[in-house]
Write a protein that binds this DNA or RNA. Sequence first.
DNA 1: TAGATTCATCGTATAAAAACGATAAAATAA
DNA 2: TTATTTTATCGTTTTTATACGATGAATCTA
Lengths: 111, 111
Amino acid sequence: MASPKLNEFIEDEQVLAAFAKALSHPARIAILKVLAQKNECICGEIVEVLPLAQSTVSQHLKELKDADLIKGAVEGPRSCYCINWDAFDAFNLSFNHLFNHLKDQQNNTCC
Amino acid sequence: MASPKLNEFIEDEQVLAAFAKALSHPARIAILKVLAQKNECICGEIVEVLPLAQSTVSQHLKELKDADLIKGAVEGPRSCYCINWDAFDAFNLSFNHLFNHLKDQQNNTCC
DNA sequence: TAGATTCATCGTATAAAAACGATAAAATAA
DNA sequence: TTATTTTATCGTTTTTATACGATGAATCTA
């Protein structure tokens, strides 16, 4: 009965929603900030600065990776992560498109 | 055990995450588009163009309202909704700040 | 080789989100 | 006044998200 009907919305809206979902938890925003600041870093460094268990951080990293916002590379026993700027720019563009699209029709005479 | 630790992140990240969460479902993005296009409209008009039940649409409207992205006014037996442009602009600004903040530190030499 | 590090994944528990039908409240229309 | 319209809310079900500890695989170090 509670089957998500995401597929019944248009592609564009699904893509944007997926991006927004990736940013919908403060831990994931914090992770992006850390990655931007350090340029690249391993999972353990992120765990150090977040109030979350290692397994939880790893899960958040996976979600960011699934959303294509970050890249990960195995380096020996470690995993090195960094922001995927190309995808990031594309998403930023999509967002600006939505904002501009909405603003284009702005009309302050509403209820 | 799964108690959300949202409060342990900084205010700024929480605000952004809450905004992103409001946009994290295609139905809510679609609703914003309809509102922008029609400038204002009642719940029933939105229900007509979405593949969701009235109660579900009402729920999504409530979430957008809780996030302060839209305003609602009772008009007799109907509810008229429209975009809250002030809050919307503020959120857009916050998002751009995040994007710019991250981009400022961009350095393509990563793993 | 043996022990230590690092991290992804599994299992599990709890909370939140998503969806619907039914219903009640409010206002309009007959 | 009675019936109709409109929509928010309640109750419920299903799915997804969040969080943690434990474990195993991979690599490094002693």
